[in-house]
Simulated scan of single mutants.
Amino acid sequence: MEYRTLGKSGLKVSEIGFGAWAIGGDAWGPVEDQQSIQAMNYAFELGVNFFDTADVYGNGHSEKLVKELIKDKRDQIILSTKGGLMGHTRKPEPIYDRHEKVVKAFEDSLQRLGTDYIDMYFCHIWWHVEQETEAFLKAFDQLKQAGKIKAVGISTDNFDYLKTFNRHHSIDVLQVEYSILNRAAEKEILPYCQEENIGVVVRGPLQKGLLTGKFTKETVFTGNDVRQYWDRKWFEEQVEKVEKLKKLEREDRTLGQLALQFVLSHPAVSTAIPGAKTTDQVNQNVGASVRPLLTREELALINEISPA
């Protein structure tokens, strides 16, 4: 496992982390808790030291499972969680409009996680409402001064909101969606983070599983799987791109590992957090942390198939 410095936070994180949304059990189909805990422990054994969750994942369930991981190895893990969506209508109206509400959400996360500090805390609200932005920034400052947070950030794909949130140059980390199939962050967000020395955590590097190559145009998502709401035409277009990308597979590198190596090849990126529910998925993800990453020729072919 290779490790990178997470921007001005100074935190050393494994370049492949563990995204714990799926293990919450409310958005990605069936999941077994013991299997999830086993997957996290296996990731740790393979060198993963960065685990990312959120209060809203499974309505707190993901955080409670992460507690089982960190309880005997807290000082060896870089722990990240997010707040702001729990109980939110996800409409542009203020819900977390006072910093006390943010602090309360943070303290609730601490309790579920069974720890007294969090290495990295994110605002999980990705749109700008002045009262909420100010509430988070004030809470961040208070919690940092109290020694309960080492680094603070925001999870958003909106460049204008990122700049607004960072107007006092106080943000350490950004969590942003970035993949071969979604390269929007390359235009403004990633260069800005380099200029500001903001650490970048990439979510969605496998485009919700599309870049593993396991789906066809006939694939149907059911139950509580968030992917059932994808636009069908868009989905079929992405499957066509993925089929073309398969020519870059090798005996020693799967398509999913190629996709992870792609995001890790960008100099602004510190770590990628693909989700995993099983040890097999962990093994696949961690297998991307090898050198060399991608060649110029491979990057050129990716640019032809899925241009920026």
Rank of each mutant, 00 (worst) to 15 (best):
A272N: 05
E63G: 10
Y229M: 01
H169R: 11
W234E: 03
Y121F: 14
N285E: 05
V56E: 01
I78K: 06
S155F: 14
V102F: 14
P92C: 07
A105G: 10
D280R: 12
I273P: 04
W21Y: 10
N59T: 10
I23Q: 07
I305S: 02
F140I: 07
E195V: 12
C193A: 07
S80D: 03
A184C: 12
Q261E: 06
L301S: 02
G204E: 10
S179N: 00
Q76C: 10
E236W: 03
S109I: 09
F51R: 03
V220Q: 00
L301Q: 04
A300D: 08
T5R: 08
E132H: 15
A288G: 02
S270L: 03
A268T: 00
L110V: 10
E237D: 13
V239H: 04
T212L: 13
Y192N: 05
P30V: 01
Q284M: 14
K246W: 04
G83V: 13
L69N: 01
G87Y: 09
L69T: 01
F50Q: 01
K150P: 09
G84K: 10
S14F: 14
E298A: 08
A185S: 04
N166H: 03
G58A: 07
L174S: 09
V226H: 00
P94Q: 06
R227Q: 00
I23V: 13
K67Y: 14
Q175L: 15
G213D: 02
G83K: 05
Q238L: 04
